[in-house]
Design a protein around this nucleic acid. Structure first.
Length: 503
RNA sequence: GCCCCCGUAGCCAAAUGGUAAGGCAGCGGACUUUUAAUCCGAAGAUCGUGGGUUCGAUUCCCACCGGGGGCACCA
């Protein structure tokens, strides 16, 4: 485009209606709309276009030579192109085919598109482009657009739900000196002035507990967490999690509240209790079954981890039954057979795992894939979570539950450990594991322990994976489809990260 | 990190060991009630990048880059 014909964008445009409403208006009603030209056809003395706005709907508009006069008609019709933003004013009329149409008497070209729109009926089909150029995806793909609107409604519903029940929303640090609250590898980043590394949080848990100890009693945070792990259809590197904590509650209280929250959220955003996900129908209604963690592992693998208590015993049991070993003739139920030969990575990993790691792997491979309909998985072995409270009637298990749907863990919650002596011992165990090379253990947080020593009320906390829930409710094939701008590798030649300009 | 598949014009999308069909968008023209408007005309691609095999490769082989799916890790 040369300087001569360069278009100058308009500053603002007053709108009095949206496209979905305009379409319902009777003939002769005057309307004033702004939006994007999504379809445009000229035919001699009349031209039709479709304008799309934030209602998500499109309304047809027309320019007529007889109404506008030849010079104006020629100028206006010649200036409009697909993808342009226009402001229109005019009276509604109905075409022979019965379509409600804005007969434009004032046209304001708000801004031009310099690049052409995606194919007008196929839209953006390449998944890579839908992620990298999301603005084109949500502009041309109504399903994708609807997904993000649903996600937004889900999140505001959750906030309202908790606010109504005496919770307050708070914000805790994303930059942390020690990443804790979950078993995961953190991202490290650098603070220049302090000349030291910080970690992006993997969980807000210990900060939220500090706030409850300070007397706010019921708090929640809805925010981003970062985990330095691989990419697949049910994991993201930065993901949105809701965590709440309530003083004087135990995990049973949270089981009641989370079922109520999810059921009412599903009802709110989809209008019903059942959700179709792919070819599966998920029924969130009614009571959800409780599945005992260790009993389920025993049922699916034949190994009773209540009696098998050491790493060596467990490994022996696993070998004996031919579980977990890739390429075996009889893999564990729910474990996909492999075409590939056993890799060194698999064997090495098996050997290096701790007791907790092995137990968890048994569950993940043999049990979890069969948990499709919403259920509570309860009473995990004590080795799995260093911040959870032991059951009073069985100190080898935790007062803990997860909500599993479609084989995805969407909720994890437990009665919190508030005993500073026990907590210190369990974090020291984690520190030893870390010193021995396990980088997914929790880091020691002296300030958190001090907080607990000052006194912490009994409480129960809960974490809900927002991305996963949103994906289930919108039939999204992968979690990337419910994140507007998922992490992608750089396209060669377009990397923008390194050119910091001294700000 | 490993395995499989994919990468053709702004978008969608074929075919082929002899340098690439069509559609949409864009450009020029016709058309006063179209609905993915239609019709006519001209144009647009070093077939992801780099090597190799071959008389000749977009097509076969290798490596790399990017994406998707699966496995692993993990939530």
């Amino acid at each position: 485009m040369t300087d001569q014909d360069q278009f100058h964008p308009v500053d603002r445009f007053e709108v009095d209606m949206l496209a979905d409403e305009a379409k319902t208006k009777a003939d002769e009603t005057t309307v004033r709309l702004a939006g994007r030209v999504m379809l445009w056809r000229k035919m001699g003395g009349i031209a039709f276009g479709q304008l799309q706005d934030r209602s998500g709907e499109r309304v047809q508009f027309s320019l007529r030579k007889n109404d506008l006069g030849a010079p104006t008609f020629r100028e206006w019709a010649g200036s409009i192109a697909l993808g342009d933003f226009v402001g229109i004013h005019g009276k509604m009329w109905t075409t022979d085919k019965g379509e409600h149409t804005v007969g434009v008497d004032q046209l304001t070209l708000l801004n031009k598109a310099m690049r052409s729109m995606p194919d007008k009926h196929a839209g953006v089909a390449d998944p890579e482009l839908t992620y990298r150029k999301r603005y084109l995806d949500i502009l041309t793909n109504p399903d994708s657009r609807a997904r993000f609107i649903t996600r937004s409604r889900l999140i505001s519903f959750i906030r309202d739900f908790l606010d109504e029940r005496g919770f307050i929303e708070i914000e805790t640090p994303v930059l942390q000196a020690a990443a804790s609250g979950a078993a995961a590898r953190p991202f490290a980043t650098r603070h220049n002035a302090l000349d030291r590394d910080f970690y992006l949080r993997i969980s807000p848990e210990t900060y939220l507990k500090r706030v409850v100890a300070g007397g706010l009693e019921r708090v929640y945070e809805l925010g981003r967490n970062f985990r330095n792990e691989g990419i697949d259809s049910s994991h993201l590197q930065e993901f949105t999690m809701l965590e709440w904590y309530a003083a004087y509650w135990d995990y049973r209280d949270n089981m009641v509240l989370i079922r109520e929250l999810i059921q009412s959220a599903v009802e709110h955003v989809t209008g019903q209790a059942k959700v179709t996900f792919g070819s599966t129908e998920l029924d969130f209604g009614g009571e959800w079954p409780e599945i005992d963690y260790r009993a389920a592992v025993a049922q699916h693998t034949g190994i009773d981890i209540r009696s098998v208590r050491t790493v060596d015993q467990l490994k022996a049991e696993i070998r004996e039954r031919g579980l977990l070993l890739i390429g075996d003739s009889e893999p564990a139920p729910g474990v996909q057979p492999h075409d590939a030969p056993p890799s060194q990575g698999e064997a090495g990993m098996f050997d290096g795992l701790s007791y907790a790691g092995l137990v968890d792997m048994l569950y993940k491979r043999a049990v979890r894939p069969s948990l499709i309909q919403p259920c509570f998985l309860v009473h995990h072995p004590v080795e799995l979570v260093p911040l959870a409270r032991r059951s009073d009637d069985d100190p080898t298990r935790l007062d803990m539950f997860q909500v599993v749907v479609n084989g995805w863990e969407i909720v994890k919650a437990y009665s919190e450990l508030v005993d500073p002596i026990d907590q210190r011992a369990r974090l020291e165990e984690q520190a030893e594991l870390r010193a021995a090379g396990d980088d997914e253990t929790m880091m020691m947080e002296e300030d958190f322990l001090e907080c607990m020593e000052h006194g912490m009320p009994p409480m129960s906390g809960l974490g809900l994976g927002i991305d996963r829930l949103a994906a289930l409710l919108t039939d999204a094939p992968t979690l990337k489809d419910v994140v507007l701008f998922p992490l992608m590798r750089d396209v060669p030649g377009t990397a923008a990260g390194d050119e910091s300009s001294g700000d």
